[in-house]
Amino acid sequence: MEFVRENNKILGYIISSVNIFISGMASIRGVIMIATGTPIGILACAFLVVDGANSIRS
């Protein structure tokens, strides 16, 4: 029973780290697209950056 609980904790940490990595990549991609985009694209990419930052914070 203890072994299963430990595996669930490890799995939870792996899922959390993957979520943080993907959120960080979305934020970086949004910043790059803001620097090279059109005004409407900049607005959409700003949403990516804020959403990525929010996901990392959670």
Score class of each variant (00 low, 15 high):
R5D: 12
I14M: 05
G52M: 02
F21H: 14
C45W: 02
I34H: 01
K9Y: 10
S58P: 04
I15T: 05
F21A: 13
V18N: 13
V4N: 10
V4W: 04
N7H: 13
G24K: 07
I42G: 02
A44G: 08
E6Q: 11
R5E: 13
S55L: 06
N19D: 14
R57N: 14
F3Q: 11
K9T: 05
M1K: 11
A46G: 06
F3C: 08
L43I: 06
T36H: 07
F47V: 14
I40F: 01
V50C: 04
L11G: 13
L11Q: 14
M33W: 02
Y13I: 08
G30T: 04
G30K: 04
R5P: 08
A46P: 01
R5I: 13
N7G: 15
I56V: 12
I22K: 15
F47I: 15
M1Q: 13
R29M: 11
L43E: 01
E2N: 09
I32W: 02
K9H: 11
G52T: 07
V18D: 12
V49L: 06
G30N: 03
R29C: 07
S16Y: 09
G12L: 00
C45A: 15
I28R: 09
E6M: 08
M1P: 10
G30W: 01
G37D: 00
F47D: 11
S16M: 12
G30Y: 02
I14N: 01
A53I: 05
A35H: 08
P39Q: 05
I22H: 14
I32V: 13
L11W: 10
N8V: 08
T38R: 00
P39R: 05
V49T: 12
G41K: 01
S16L: 14
R29S: 08
G41C: 02
S23N: 07
G12C: 01
S55R: 03
L43K: 01
S58L: 09
P39N: 08
F21N: 12
G12R: 03
V4Q: 10
G41E: 01
I42R: 15
G37L: 00
G24W: 10
A44W: 00
G37M: 03
L43S: 02
S55I: 05
A53P: 12
R5N: 14
A46S: 08
F3M: 12
V49R: 13
I15G: 06
M25G: 05
S27M: 14
L11E: 15
D51A: 13
F47G: 12
A26L: 08
A44H: 01
